[in-house]
Amino acid sequence: MKLDEQDLGAAMAEAVGGVRPPVTRLVEGAALRGRRFRARRRLAVGTATCALAAVVAGSSWLAVGGAGNGTGERAGGTIRTMPGMTDGGPGEVTFPDFSGLPREDTTPPGKEVVTDRALAQVLDELLPRDARSEAYSAVVNGPRADGKATGTGPYDIIVRTPAGPAAVSDADVHLYSAFHRSRYLGELFSCAAGEDERTHLALRAQDPASCGVRNLADGSVLMLLTFESDGPNGEDGGNSAWLLRPDGVLVSAASYGAGGSAPAHTPADLERLVTSERWQVYVDPGVNERAEDFRPFRGFDGAVPDGGREDLG
Protein backbone atom coordinates (compact mmCIF):
# COMPACT_ATOMS: atom_id res chain seq x y z
CA MET A 1 0.00 0.00 0.00
CA LYS A 2 1.47 3.34 -0.88
CA LEU A 3 1.02 6.80 0.58
CA ASP A 4 -0.11 8.88 -2.36
CA GLU A 5 -0.97 12.54 -2.68
CA GLN A 6 -4.64 12.11 -1.90
CA ASP A 7 -3.83 10.12 1.21
CA LEU A 8 -1.47 12.78 2.44
CA GLY A 9 -3.97 15.61 2.00
CA ALA A 10 -6.60 13.63 3.87
CA ALA A 11 -4.13 12.64 6.59
CA MET A 12 -3.09 16.24 7.12
CA ALA A 13 -6.74 17.28 7.40
CA GLU A 14 -7.36 14.47 9.90
CA ALA A 15 -4.26 15.40 11.89
CA VAL A 16 -4.89 19.12 12.33
CA GLY A 17 -8.48 19.67 11.18
CA GLY A 18 -9.84 19.15 14.66
CA VAL A 19 -7.29 21.38 16.34
CA ARG A 20 -8.76 24.21 18.38
CA PRO A 21 -6.41 27.15 17.86
CA PRO A 22 -6.13 29.94 20.44
CA VAL A 23 -7.73 32.47 18.12
CA THR A 24 -8.22 35.28 20.62
CA ARG A 25 -4.59 35.07 21.66
CA LEU A 26 -3.54 34.99 18.02
CA VAL A 27 -5.45 38.16 17.22
CA GLU A 28 -4.26 40.10 20.26
CA GLY A 29 -0.69 38.88 19.88
CA ALA A 30 -0.69 39.74 16.19
CA ALA A 31 -1.89 43.28 16.84
CA LEU A 32 0.83 43.76 19.45
CA ARG A 33 3.52 42.38 17.16
CA GLY A 34 2.18 44.42 14.28
CA ARG A 35 2.67 47.62 16.22
CA ARG A 36 6.24 46.55 17.02
CA PHE A 37 6.90 45.71 13.38
CA ARG A 38 5.76 49.18 12.43
CA ALA A 39 7.99 50.80 15.02
CA ARG A 40 10.87 48.67 13.79
CA ARG A 41 10.20 49.66 10.22
CA ARG A 42 10.34 53.32 11.12
CA LEU A 43 13.88 52.76 12.27
CA ALA A 44 15.01 50.44 9.53
CA VAL A 45 17.16 51.83 6.79
CA GLY A 46 17.79 50.51 3.34
CA THR A 47 16.04 49.82 0.10
CA ALA A 48 15.40 46.11 0.42
CA THR A 49 12.24 45.19 -1.38
CA CYS A 50 9.85 42.75 0.14
CA ALA A 51 9.47 39.79 -2.18
CA LEU A 52 5.77 39.91 -1.60
CA ALA A 53 5.50 43.37 -3.06
CA ALA A 54 4.87 41.83 -6.44
CA VAL A 55 1.76 40.12 -5.16
CA VAL A 56 -0.20 43.33 -5.03
CA ALA A 57 -0.09 46.59 -6.88
CA GLY A 58 1.99 49.06 -4.86
CA SER A 59 0.14 52.21 -5.74
CA SER A 60 0.55 55.35 -3.77
CA TRP A 61 -2.54 56.16 -1.77
CA LEU A 62 -1.23 59.38 -0.46
CA ALA A 63 0.41 62.31 -2.11
CA VAL A 64 1.71 65.68 -1.08
CA GLY A 65 1.47 68.86 -3.06
CA GLY A 66 4.32 70.43 -4.98
CA ALA A 67 7.30 72.08 -3.36
CA GLY A 68 6.71 75.31 -1.63
CA ASN A 69 2.95 75.18 -1.44
CA GLY A 70 3.19 74.56 2.26
CA THR A 71 0.82 71.64 2.59
CA GLY A 72 -0.12 68.32 1.06
CA GLU A 73 -3.00 65.93 1.42
CA ARG A 74 -3.02 62.85 3.58
CA ALA A 75 -5.87 60.53 4.33
CA GLY A 76 -6.37 61.78 7.87
CA GLY A 77 -5.67 65.46 7.21
CA THR A 78 -2.85 67.58 5.86
CA ILE A 79 0.90 67.03 5.80
CA ARG A 80 2.44 70.32 6.85
CA THR A 81 5.71 71.28 5.26
CA MET A 82 8.08 72.44 7.96
CA PRO A 83 9.08 76.12 7.87
CA GLY A 84 12.23 76.78 5.85
CA MET A 85 12.15 73.34 4.26
CA THR A 86 10.81 71.79 1.07
CA ASP A 87 8.77 68.68 0.35
CA GLY A 88 11.93 67.09 -0.99
CA GLY A 89 12.01 64.69 -3.90
CA PRO A 90 13.93 64.98 -7.15
CA GLY A 91 14.93 68.55 -7.94
CA GLU A 92 14.02 69.97 -4.56
CA VAL A 93 17.30 69.20 -2.82
CA THR A 94 20.83 68.69 -4.11
CA PHE A 95 22.57 65.47 -3.24
CA PRO A 96 26.29 65.43 -2.47
CA ASP A 97 28.62 64.19 -5.21
CA PHE A 98 29.30 60.62 -4.17
CA SER A 99 31.38 59.74 -7.22
CA GLY A 100 34.66 60.09 -5.33
CA LEU A 101 33.71 57.64 -2.61
CA PRO A 102 35.26 54.16 -2.63
CA ARG A 103 33.23 51.61 -4.53
CA GLU A 104 33.82 49.07 -1.82
CA ASP A 105 32.88 49.78 1.76
CA THR A 106 36.20 48.99 3.44
CA THR A 107 37.75 50.22 6.65
CA PRO A 108 40.19 53.09 6.04
CA PRO A 109 43.82 52.50 7.09
CA GLY A 110 44.41 53.13 10.79
CA LYS A 111 40.71 52.90 11.62
CA GLU A 112 38.40 50.16 12.81
CA VAL A 113 34.69 49.59 12.84
CA VAL A 114 33.06 51.27 15.80
CA THR A 115 31.87 48.93 18.57
CA ASP A 116 28.39 48.80 20.03
CA ARG A 117 29.65 50.16 23.36
CA ALA A 118 31.38 53.07 21.71
CA LEU A 119 28.17 54.01 19.96
CA ALA A 120 26.22 53.76 23.20
CA GLN A 121 28.75 56.05 24.83
CA VAL A 122 28.35 58.60 22.04
CA LEU A 123 24.59 58.60 22.49
CA ASP A 124 24.94 59.04 26.23
CA GLU A 125 27.27 61.99 25.82
CA LEU A 126 25.17 63.67 23.13
CA LEU A 127 21.87 63.50 24.98
CA PRO A 128 21.03 66.46 27.23
CA ARG A 129 22.16 65.73 30.78
CA ASP A 130 18.59 65.53 32.09
CA ALA A 131 17.58 63.16 29.29
CA ARG A 132 20.28 60.58 29.76
CA SER A 133 19.09 57.05 30.11
CA GLU A 134 19.50 54.42 32.76
CA ALA A 135 20.77 51.99 30.19
CA TYR A 136 21.84 51.74 26.57
CA SER A 137 22.02 49.02 24.03
CA ALA A 138 23.50 48.87 20.56
CA VAL A 139 24.27 46.45 17.80
CA VAL A 140 26.60 46.58 14.81
CA ASN A 141 25.07 44.54 12.00
CA GLY A 142 27.40 43.61 9.19
CA PRO A 143 29.98 41.05 8.13
CA ARG A 144 31.64 39.54 11.17
CA ALA A 145 34.34 37.01 11.88
CA ASP A 146 35.14 35.69 15.35
CA GLY A 147 32.61 38.09 16.78
CA LYS A 148 34.31 41.16 15.32
CA ALA A 149 33.44 43.35 12.36
CA THR A 150 35.54 42.24 9.43
CA GLY A 151 36.32 45.69 8.11
CA THR A 152 34.29 45.28 4.95
CA GLY A 153 30.78 46.68 5.19
CA PRO A 154 28.21 47.88 4.70
CA TYR A 155 27.35 48.24 8.36
CA ASP A 156 23.97 48.86 9.80
CA ILE A 157 24.11 50.12 13.36
CA ILE A 158 21.41 50.75 15.92
CA VAL A 159 21.92 52.32 19.32
CA ARG A 160 19.03 53.00 21.62
CA THR A 161 17.81 53.87 25.02
CA PRO A 162 15.24 51.41 26.28
CA ALA A 163 11.59 52.31 25.97
CA GLY A 164 9.33 51.84 28.93
CA PRO A 165 8.55 53.44 32.24
CA ALA A 166 12.10 53.06 33.53
CA ALA A 167 13.55 55.07 30.69
CA VAL A 168 14.38 58.67 31.35
CA SER A 169 14.53 59.18 27.66
CA ASP A 170 13.62 57.17 24.60
CA ALA A 171 15.80 57.66 21.56
CA ASP A 172 17.10 55.54 18.75
CA VAL A 173 19.95 56.34 16.42
CA HIS A 174 20.64 54.35 13.31
CA LEU A 175 23.72 54.53 11.06
CA TYR A 176 24.03 52.96 7.67
CA SER A 177 27.47 53.08 6.14
CA ALA A 178 26.66 53.00 2.42
CA PHE A 179 23.27 54.56 2.05
CA HIS A 180 24.35 56.61 -0.96
CA ARG A 181 24.20 53.44 -3.04
CA SER A 182 20.44 53.18 -2.57
CA ARG A 183 18.56 52.96 -5.83
CA TYR A 184 15.85 55.46 -5.03
CA LEU A 185 17.87 58.06 -3.22
CA GLY A 186 15.97 61.05 -4.58
CA GLU A 187 12.57 59.60 -3.91
CA LEU A 188 13.50 58.43 -0.43
CA PHE A 189 14.24 61.96 0.67
CA SER A 190 10.76 63.08 -0.22
CA CYS A 191 7.68 63.81 1.85
CA ALA A 192 5.54 61.98 -0.70
CA ALA A 193 3.93 59.12 1.16
CA GLY A 194 3.16 55.74 -0.30
CA GLU A 195 3.76 52.09 0.33
CA ASP A 196 6.26 50.87 -2.23
CA GLU A 197 10.03 50.62 -2.13
CA ARG A 198 10.44 54.14 -3.49
CA THR A 199 8.77 55.62 -0.47
CA HIS A 200 10.70 56.71 2.58
CA LEU A 201 10.50 53.88 5.06
CA ALA A 202 9.08 56.01 7.83
CA LEU A 203 6.26 57.14 5.57
CA ARG A 204 5.18 53.65 4.62
CA ALA A 205 4.13 52.79 8.13
CA GLN A 206 2.29 55.90 9.24
CA ASP A 207 1.07 59.19 7.85
CA PRO A 208 3.23 62.08 9.05
CA ALA A 209 1.73 65.25 10.45
CA SER A 210 4.59 67.36 9.14
CA CYS A 211 7.65 66.81 7.03
CA GLY A 212 10.52 68.80 5.57
CA VAL A 213 13.69 68.29 3.57
CA ARG A 214 16.60 70.69 3.07
CA ASN A 215 20.29 70.87 2.33
CA LEU A 216 22.75 71.78 5.07
CA ALA A 217 25.83 73.93 4.56
CA ASP A 218 28.15 70.92 4.11
CA GLY A 219 25.92 69.47 1.37
CA SER A 220 24.19 66.92 3.60
CA VAL A 221 20.48 66.31 3.07
CA LEU A 222 18.31 66.55 6.17
CA MET A 223 14.75 65.26 6.47
CA LEU A 224 12.57 65.84 9.53
CA LEU A 225 9.26 64.13 10.27
CA THR A 226 6.64 64.38 12.98
CA PHE A 227 3.88 61.87 13.65
CA GLU A 228 0.83 62.43 15.77
CA SER A 229 -0.39 59.92 18.30
CA ASP A 230 -3.71 58.20 17.67
CA GLY A 231 -4.25 57.88 21.41
CA PRO A 232 -3.17 55.38 24.05
CA ASN A 233 -4.26 52.36 21.99
CA GLY A 234 -3.29 53.60 18.56
CA GLU A 235 -0.08 54.52 16.82
CA ASP A 236 2.50 56.29 18.93
CA GLY A 237 3.32 59.90 18.20
CA GLY A 238 6.92 60.73 17.52
CA ASN A 239 9.61 62.60 15.69
CA SER A 240 12.44 61.49 13.47
CA ALA A 241 15.40 63.03 11.68
CA TRP A 242 17.30 61.56 8.73
CA LEU A 243 20.64 62.91 7.57
CA LEU A 244 22.49 61.75 4.45
CA ARG A 245 26.07 62.99 4.67
CA PRO A 246 28.62 63.61 1.92
CA ASP A 247 30.54 60.54 3.12
CA GLY A 248 27.57 58.37 2.12
CA VAL A 249 26.61 57.58 5.72
CA LEU A 250 23.00 57.94 6.76
CA VAL A 251 22.32 58.87 10.37
CA SER A 252 18.74 58.69 11.56
CA ALA A 253 17.29 59.31 14.98
CA ALA A 254 13.80 58.74 16.27
CA SER A 255 11.95 59.37 19.47
CA TYR A 256 8.47 58.02 20.11
CA GLY A 257 6.17 58.55 23.05
CA ALA A 258 4.59 55.31 24.20
CA GLY A 259 0.91 55.03 25.05
CA GLY A 260 -0.06 58.49 23.86
CA SER A 261 2.64 60.37 25.77
CA ALA A 262 4.73 63.03 24.03
CA PRO A 263 8.09 61.95 22.61
CA ALA A 264 11.06 62.90 24.75
CA HIS A 265 12.93 64.63 21.91
CA THR A 266 11.73 67.36 19.56
CA PRO A 267 12.66 67.49 15.87
CA ALA A 268 15.22 70.18 16.75
CA ASP A 269 16.75 67.87 19.39
CA LEU A 270 16.99 65.09 16.85
CA GLU A 271 18.49 67.38 14.22
CA ARG A 272 21.23 68.29 16.71
CA LEU A 273 21.72 64.62 17.44
CA VAL A 274 22.07 63.41 13.84
CA THR A 275 24.30 66.29 12.76
CA SER A 276 26.93 65.52 15.38
CA GLU A 277 30.28 64.63 13.85
CA ARG A 278 30.71 61.99 16.51
CA TRP A 279 28.59 59.49 14.59
CA GLN A 280 31.22 57.56 12.70
CA VAL A 281 31.23 54.01 11.41
CA TYR A 282 35.05 53.87 11.28
CA VAL A 283 36.94 55.25 14.26
CA ASP A 284 40.41 55.44 15.76
CA PRO A 285 41.11 52.31 17.86
CA GLY A 286 41.35 54.54 20.93
CA VAL A 287 37.65 55.40 20.65
CA ASN A 288 36.66 51.77 21.03
CA GLU A 289 39.22 51.19 23.78
CA ARG A 290 37.90 54.10 25.84
CA ALA A 291 34.37 52.71 25.56
CA GLU A 292 35.26 49.26 26.84
CA ASP A 293 34.24 50.14 30.36
CA PHE A 294 31.24 52.22 29.41
CA ARG A 295 28.29 51.64 31.71
CA PRO A 296 25.35 51.26 31.83
CA PHE A 297 25.32 48.97 28.85
CA ARG A 298 23.27 45.84 28.77
CA GLY A 299 23.65 44.59 25.22
CA PHE A 300 20.95 44.60 22.66
CA ASP A 301 17.70 42.85 23.40
CA GLY A 302 17.43 41.72 19.80
CA ALA A 303 13.98 43.22 19.33
CA VAL A 304 14.93 45.44 16.43
CA PRO A 305 17.58 43.78 14.30
CA ASP A 306 16.32 40.22 14.37
CA GLY A 307 14.67 39.78 11.01
CA GLY A 308 14.35 43.52 10.63
CA ARG A 309 15.47 43.46 7.01
CA GLU A 310 12.57 41.23 6.14
CA ASP A 311 10.16 43.74 7.55
CA LEU A 312 11.11 46.48 5.21
CA GLY A 313 8.18 45.73 2.93
Binding site: G29, R35, F37
Partner: peptide, 18 residues
Protein backbone atom coordinates in the same frame (compact mmCIF):
# COMPACT_ATOMS: atom_id res chain seq x y z
CA UNK B 1 1.49 29.97 17.55
CA UNK B 2 4.58 32.13 17.26
CA UNK B 3 4.62 31.70 13.50
CA UNK B 4 0.94 32.49 13.05
CA UNK B 5 1.24 35.56 15.25
CA UNK B 6 4.26 36.71 13.28
CA UNK B 7 2.46 36.34 9.95
CA UNK B 8 -0.64 38.12 11.21
CA UNK B 9 1.50 40.77 12.89
CA UNK B 10 3.22 41.51 9.60
CA UNK B 11 -0.17 41.70 7.95
CA UNK B 12 -1.24 44.19 10.64
CA UNK B 13 1.86 46.31 10.05
CA UNK B 14 1.17 46.45 6.31
CA UNK B 15 -2.61 46.26 6.45
CA UNK B 16 -2.99 49.14 4.01
CA UNK B 17 -1.29 46.97 1.42
CA UNK B 18 -2.73 43.61 2.45
Amino acid sequence: EDLAQTALGKAYASWGRV
